[in-house]
């Protein structure tokens, strides 16, 4: 028979084997700073030509992010597993952030979203975040708002494309020129949420029969609503969210 003190002990033991879950401001003795960036890449900053020949330049690309978490996973999280991320250490940002991926022009750096100054040391090799509807600011009511100008064969149009679909991205390790997310004691590391806008509009520099362009919507449907009606966008299939070149598992409402 278990007495109450024994039951309490069981609870303590159980809690001790659970993962370390902290927000920013943890009390680990060895910590560093982990910065979170959002990157729309040169497609957003410098513009590009869509698969259907429209030269697109963005004034603003507002994207709203929430529930941003970074994890130390072992074994490493595999986004194609379709499972949730199970990290032995997890840190999170509690705020909702609307950032402009086109901010500061063609040669701008990725946008810093926030940082966690007390991240336990280790390799943060997985990240998750949600695209949520903004509750204030220039993109209120939408998860993604793109404004700018497009030109094709002398025809110039100003556009505003607003998307309200909410999604959750679960990603493994950043894939790029360098490895990211390695927090040393007293040091600073970073992670990046990368957004591939060529997946929405296609890319004229990629063969038209490439799967990238076959899956992309192109730009034409967005400027001729009378012909196409409301553009049906399935964000889960477009896979906007990445970690550098690495894949994410995307679930949308």
């Amino acid at each position: 028979m278990f007495r109450k003190p024994t039951a309490s002990l069981c609870i303590i033991v159980l809690a001790s084997v659970c993962i370390i879950v902290i927000g920013c401001g943890g009390d680990e003795s060895t910590t560093g700073t982990l910065q979170f960036y959002a990157n729309g890449e040169d497609f957003v900053r410098q513009g590009f030509v869509s698969k259907d020949g429209w030269s697109i330049n963005f004034d603003h690309v507002y994207i709203t992010l929430a529930d941003i978490k970074a994890y130390q996973t072992d074994p490493p999280y595999e986004p194609r597993s379709d499972g949730s991320i199970d990290g032995k250490v997890r840190i999170s940002l509690d705020n909702i952030y609307t950032v402009d991926l086109a901010e500061d022009g063609a040669n701008a750096s990725p946008i810093i979203v926030d940082e966690c100054a007390d991240a336990p040391v280790g390799h943060y090799n997985a990240i998750s975040w949600k695209l949520v509807r903004a509750v204030s600011g220039p993109a209120v009511g939408y998860t993604l708002v793109m404004t700018g100008t497009a030109e094709k064969e002398g025809r110039v149009v100003d556009f505003t494309i607003s998307i309200d679909e909410e999604c959750e991205n679960s990603c493994g390790e950043y894939v790029g020129d360098e490895r990211k997310g390695m927090v040393a004691d007293g040091g600073t590391a970073d992670l990046e949420m990368t957004f591939h806008f060529d997946h929405i509009f296609g890319d004229a520099e990629t063969p038209l029969d490439d799967n990238l362009n076959l899956g992309a919507i192109g730009f034409e449907p967005f400027i001729d609503m009378s012909k196409y009606g409301e553009v049906d966008i399935n964000m889960a299939e477009l896979h906007l969210g990445h970690v550098g070149e690495g894949h994410c598992h995307c679930l949308c409402e």
Binding site: P79, H196, N211, L212, G215, H239, G246, H247
Partner: peptide, 9 residues
């Protein structure tokens, strides 16, 4: 289903 961008090999 399109693949190249998913491409994650």
């Amino acid at each position: 289903m399109w693949i190249r961008w998913k491409l994650v090999p």
